[in-house]
Amino acid sequence: MSLVDVLNVTKEYANGDETIRPLDGVSLSIHEGDYVSLMGASGSGKSTLLNLIAGIDQVASGEIVVAGTDITKLSRGKLADWRAAHIGYVFQTHNLIPVLTAYENVELPLLLLPMSAAERRKRVEIALEAVDLTPRASHYPRQMSGGQEQRVGIARAIVASPTIIVADEPTGSLDDETTEQILSLLSRVNDELGMTLLMVTHDADAGARARRQVRLERGRLMENGKETKATTLRTA
């Protein structure tokens, strides 16, 4: 059974008098434990699809079912609650909160979930250890390198054990060596922690690290030369 079903999703927006449709009836299924890379040319709509799955953008039509919930039907407030429980977001530019330490940044998503302070502390420590940043726990983002910041970003994304981790060009602003470190880390997150990953990238080498590679071409999703389809056709 699939974890994420994108069902016949269309996304369009107006650009002056012109209507742009980056996604035109696309479908895709992501299974538990998958590591999917989503590639395509600039402006092809790959980040748009990622943001739709992450619940921070809205479809024009179609359904997106994540762990049995059609998130296109959720109100803005419910969608925020849903994101807190189900989505771990890794941003291209890290997007850490500058006035919070690495520890506090990682702790942020947990403050939204019902758990004790002791449980929170344990989870943050495990997440920081997973990204090898325990000694940097009390450092502020300005005191860390870009690679370290991104590792904190990954720790923040995995700390709440979300249903799926979405990463939007996670290596887009990093040098080659740091890119390699981050890609290895993401592979470990998938292999060792068993977390489901969807990564948007324009870098073919980075995309090749994923188990599945999906390309977005002219509004259509292609995998292994064929248009992708959803395996589940009905929402829960």
Partner: peptide, 15 residues
Amino acid sequence: IRELATLQAIGYRRR
């Protein structure tokens, strides 16, 4: 602006 949007993406409500 970006920081506030990040908080929303993480799951914090606008309120």
